[in-house]
Amino acid sequence: MSRAKEALVGVVIVAAVLLVTFGTLWLQGVSLRAAETEVTAAFTSVGLIRPGNNVKYRGVRIGRIREIEVDPQGELVLVRARIQDDIPLPEDAVAILSPESLFGDWQMEIAPRDRFPAYRYSEPREEDHLPGYSIPDISQLTATADRISADIEILTERVGIAFSEETARNVASLIENTEEVTQRLSQLISQQADAFVGVTGEIQETTAEIGEAAVGLRETLDRINATLAREEVGEALNDLLAVTSNLRAFSEGVEGTSDQFRMTAARADSTLMRVSSLLATVEEGEGTLGMLFRDPGVATEMEGALQELQLLLEDVRLNPRRYLRLSIF
């Protein structure tokens, strides 16, 4: 046994040990140079995040989730992450959990609070912990949409009952149309929910456009709130007429080619918008139409659902990449 051979054994072993050690560290994303620091964020629930997921700041990966635990009081979930310590985080930093891609990988994004002011952040007990908010899973988007359409259905039904004995027969038939169209809309949404696994590129675009529309929706809502106040029923019914025809066009468009889809989606946006504004008016109990709806609960619930939908849609608009990965399926 020559000394050289013995040395060779040593060299091979050392090479393997180094390879395993540094390979593992590298693949784990542990930076050997940059020092790291730990941040902790508090959430009410954490969705699908798990140790090893990325932590991002302004879209750049700055670390990984290390540990997730329920806090001793049992009301918050504490997520600990190691991040590079050379990044100055904003004073009012918050942590947002969201899907990074649709493979089920989640991420924690650190951002100033005013970037997403609408989120309801969990306030941590400890001062140096970040407030956190976990975005609902994208599957909740379709669920919310479904709920909205169900609400529309209920409201429309009531409108139908209220007007059936009225002299304005055309209004009644319009409302029937509305009901039919709404059903189709509901179908469409549930179809989307079914086909969620196989979402197509067009749906993304639609989703994005719905997002934009949703923003407009609130503006319109306010405007119409103002103009419709104390207005005649006839005007409201004219609006409903327009809404219905738009809805019809929308649902017909859905059956058309994908090229038409984009256009009909845009029309659907405005349709939805008007329905919402009408409903808002109704909620306020303003106008003759508003008087018809005696149960404020439905409308309130709908308002909440719309708001939630809007949050999601806003997220789609702000972080289209997160949803763009849909295309790989």
Binding site: M1, K5, E6, L8, V9, V12, I13
Partner: peptide, 13 residues
């Protein structure tokens, strides 16, 4: 041991 490690390991690399 070392000669065998050379035979089993190094020679198989």
């Amino acid at each position: 041991l070392i000669p065998q490690m050379a035979r089993v390991g190094v020679d198989s690399v």
